[in-house]
Design a protein around this nucleic acid. Structure first.
Lengths: 237, 237
DNA sequence: TTTCGATGTATCAGGTTGATATATCGGATG
DNA sequence: CATCCGATATATCAACCTGATACATCGAAA
């Protein structure tokens, strides 16, 4: 899940870990604050699997590989690296670059079925953020998959809401959650419609009444927006 | 986090693990589908710490303690347990009951600062679901803490939204997220207002038009809110 | 009768999180 | 000029959660 986000960012330009985190926070907004304990292991994983390569460090020559291992329980291994030499400009920062293999992986992850273990909303939001890398049909499929998902959720939420004997606060929570889901669905409907228009080859204006032809770079509704929100557990939030 | 949910349910009546899961799903709605790999360890934890006790098993006598250990890396240890003997009536189900200690813990968890590591929305939703166990003032504090949180989020989200150069899809995502946050804040405002009314000693009916006492199960102001700002990553979910 | 799905407890590998350790750089303050 | 502090930067850890899977029993359909 995180891998997709990392690869997506590296697609644009090479970066070091810290910056990836910053971009994820400031641009994507997803992963409010991805933790380093998650980010660095992910980068190691990707490097090991050949999806990314380290393209030079800011100055230090980065040891060939610190030999991560050490399973057994030793504690050692963290002094060195002081090797004061080419401390060029910045600091020891490892700049990552995506490989062709990585590009392939990115596409698989982007299109592939949710690999499970995913958060649902988070996973969808991430994919949507990179939707411009998808073929139009895949993009539409993504939106519709999500819509179906939310519709299912709405059904169970409504069922729960009618179940009597609910605490006042619990009821408010459930109702708010339901509303949020409805709001999300409406948003998706707008996105889907705008996708459809974009894909329609702009037929010969046959249909008279049908207006709005489109154009729509931004679909109409000035208020569009909407959050993916959650609905899910929270509601709140 | 999960501990709070479990204790909250056991407060009402004793239950076995499977049922706790069911109630969490069907009633609370939070934790859409809490995993067993999360639930059972949590129950063990709570039992070990004395917050709950096992109040009889459906039939089997439950082994004294399987000795979880084995740190080191060995792989073994998973055959046994076949020991066919006292397979009583029903099935081996462990019914949990909350203790006085557990009740104390519940209150601490419910009121305590978010212990970190929490999901934010999920954590708030859970607390709200058990809000009737809080003193009115603590309830209000919970709502206001959450509101402040969302307001902060809205601020950063708006900042991101104005940052130019955003992909069409990313922008839609951010906008939707912003709206969802605003919606959440408006909801909280309604809850807060209704809480305040409930707490107001119902002054001498001074205000003429004001009626009803209460009830208010569902409050009024359609557009209250105020919100502006923020947005964070989605709602999450 | 056998098969299948619901009930039930339990464990595991893998991934995430917040906290923390280490290290360097640039600026503010005294 | 020294020193403190915050931002930049990489890395690890314990604790926890998730989905998958294993094991086991029961009731009902086929």
């Amino acid at each position: 899940m995180l891998d997709l986000a990392i690869l997506g960012l590296l697609l644009e330009q090479e970066m070091h870990g810290y910056e990836i985190r910053r971009r994820l926070r400031d641009e994507l907004g997803l992963f409010a604050n991805i933790s380093f304990g998650s980010l660095y292991p992910a980068l190691s994983r990707l490097e090991r699997s050949g999806a990314v390569t380290v393209a030079g460090s800011g100055g230090a020559v980065s040891a060939p590989i610190p030999a991560t291992g050490s399973l057994g329980g030793e504690r050692a291994g963290l002094r060195a690296r002081r090797a004061g030499s080419t401390l060029g400009t910045k600091r020891s920062r490892k700049v990552y670059r995506i490989t062709d293999e990585g590009r392939t992986l990115f596409e698989q992850l982007l299109e592939g079925d949710e690999p499970a273990g995913t958060d649902d909303a988070r996973s969808f939001g991430l994919r949507l953020a990179f939707a411009s890398h998808l073929a139009p049909s895949a993009r539409l499929a993504l939106l519709e998959r999500r819509r179906a998902q939310l519709t299912r959720r709405l059904a169970t939420d409504l069922a729960r809401a009618s179940g009597e004997r609910l605490d006042v606060y619990t009821r408010s929570l459930v109702e708010h959650s339901t509303e949020a889901t409805e709001h999300d669905i409406a948003w998706l409907d707008r996105l889907i419609e705008s996708e459809r228009l974009r894909q329609a080859p702009m037929r010969p204006a046959e249909a008279s009444g049908d207006l709005e032809t489109t154009d729509s770079t931004d679909l109409g509704d000035p208020r569009s927006g909407g959050a993916m929100t959650s609905t899910s557990p929270s509601g709140a939030s």
